[in-house]
Design a protein around this nucleic acid. Sequence first.
DNA 1: CACTTGAAGATTGTATACAATTAATGTATA
DNA 2: TATACATTAATTGTATACAATCTTCAAGTG
Lengths: 242, 242
Amino acid sequence: MTKNVEKHDKEQQKEKENRSSEEFAYQKLKTAIRKRYITRGSKLVETTLAEELGISRTPVRSAIKRLESEGLVNIFPNRGAFVITPTRREIEETFQVRAALESMAIELAIEKASDEQIAELRHIINREYEILERKAMNEYWPNNNAIHLKIAEMSDNRVLFLRVSEILEQSSLYLVLYDPFSRLDYCPMAEHEKLFAALKAKNKAAARAAMEEHLKSSTAYVYVAEEVPEDYISLHSKMENP
Amino acid sequence: MTKNVEKHDKEQQKEKENRSSEEFAYQKLKTAIRKRYITRGSKLVETTLAEELGISRTPVRSAIKRLESEGLVNIFPNRGAFVITPTRREIEETFQVRAALESMAIELAIEKASDEQIAELRHIINREYEILERKAMNEYWPNNNAIHLKIAEMSDNRVLFLRVSEILEQSSLYLVLYDPFSRLDYCPMAEHEKLFAALKAKNKAAARAAMEEHLKSSTAYVYVAEEVPEDYISLHSKMENP
DNA sequence: CACTTGAAGATTGTATACAATTAATGTATA
DNA sequence: TATACATTAATTGTATACAATCTTCAAGTG
C-alpha cells in the first residue's frame, strides 16, 4: 500500500538539503496522500516509511503527528496511523464549517480589500479558464485553492486566513480522496464569477450567499465511492481500527 | 522561568500510570501554562522539562509540538519553543473567528437541540450563579467554557464542535495570560441569559446577535498588560525570537 | 465447533547517544 | 570603545537501541 513513495537515493538527498528531515518527510507524505500514492484508510508504518525515505523513524513519526493535527491522518495509540476515510457526514459537516469561515472572510474582504488585491483575484480567476482550456488538470486544484486563499487574505485577518488555509486543505483532500479519476466534470467558473461580482460591487449579502451556495454545490460533487458506515471512523476520535 | 512545574516523584508516577508519557507531559505543560507557572514568552527547554517530569526528551518534544499545533506555543526551528505572547490584534482576530463559528453553532442548535440538551444547558448556566456566590473562581472558567461547548454540541455537527473546542481553549488562554490576578470583574451572566432566551425561543437572528455581542464584549475585557508591538510574534509564523 | 489461551512476531512508544546548529563568551583589532 | 572573529557551551535535531504493546495464529478446552 505504501510502496509507491518514490525513492531515488541521489535525487532525494538533493531535495533534502536545506530542509529538516521532518519537513522532508512531511512534504513527501502529504503529496503522497494528495496524489493518492497512499490510498485512504491505509496504514502508515513508521519503519517502512523511514527506510523508503532514507531517514530514521524519529522525523517520520513527527511528520505523521503533524499530519494528524492537520486532519489528514488518524492515529490510534499503540496501533498505528491511518490515512483518513472521511464519512459522507464528516465531509458535509466540514464544508458547512468552511462556509461559515469563508463567508465571513468574503464579507471582511469587501470592507478591507485594496484595488490591487481585487485585481490579483481577477487574475487568478482568469487563469482558471486558461487552465481548463489547456486541460492542465493537475494545475486546477492549486489554482482553485488560490482563489479561496486570496479572498481569505483580503479579509486582513491573519487568524482567519490560517484557519481557512487548514480547512481548505482538508476539504480539497476529501474531494481528491473520493474522486477516482480526477474527472472534474464540475466547473465552478460561474460560481467564482458570482463571488467576484458581489465582491467588486461590495454587496455583502450577495457575497455571503454566493459563497454558501458555492460550497454547498461543491459538497454535492463529492463522489463517495462506497458509502462508509456512519460510525466507521470519526475524525480525531480514537475509536476502533479499520 | 520553568522551575515551578511541580515534582513529587512518587505522586507523579501514580498520575502517569495508564497514560503515555507524552500525554502526561502534554497535560502537565498545558496546565502549567494555563495556571501561569510558565509565563508567556518563556522558553520551553526540552532537557530541563524532561528532568523535571522524570521522563526522556522524546515525549516532551512530542508534547511541545502538539501544543504548537493547538496554538499555545510557538516553535522556532533550531532555536526553541516559547509560550505564545499574543498581540492585541491576534486576540481580536481570534475572537472574531470564534464568533463566526459559535454564531453558526447556536443557529444550528436552534434547529437541532433536544429538550434534554436545553435543560442541561440551563443547568450549566445556573451553576454559574452558584459558583460566583461561593466565589469559587477556579471553577468559573471551566464552567463558562462548558456553556459554550454545550451549545456547540447541540449543533449536532462534530466537526464544528471540535473546531469550537480548539478555538475556545485558545481564546480562554488569551484571557488568562493577560489577567494578572484572575480578577473577573466582568460577569457575563446577563449575556448568557440572552443567549439562552434566544435559543429557547428559537429566534436565530437574536441568537446570532447575542453571540456576536457576547464575544465582542469578552474581547474588550482582555487586559493587555504591556502593549506588544504588532510584529512581535505572529501566531504560527517563524519569525525572530523574543 | 466456537471460544479461550498463550507464545512469537511485528509495530509503536521511550530512552539515550550522537550530530548539527545556535547562543554566549572572550579575544584581537581598528 | 566598539566591532569582528573565533572558540566554547548549550540546545535542538536525528539515529539507534531497547521496552511495552498489540496482532497473529496455532493449540488447547468446553
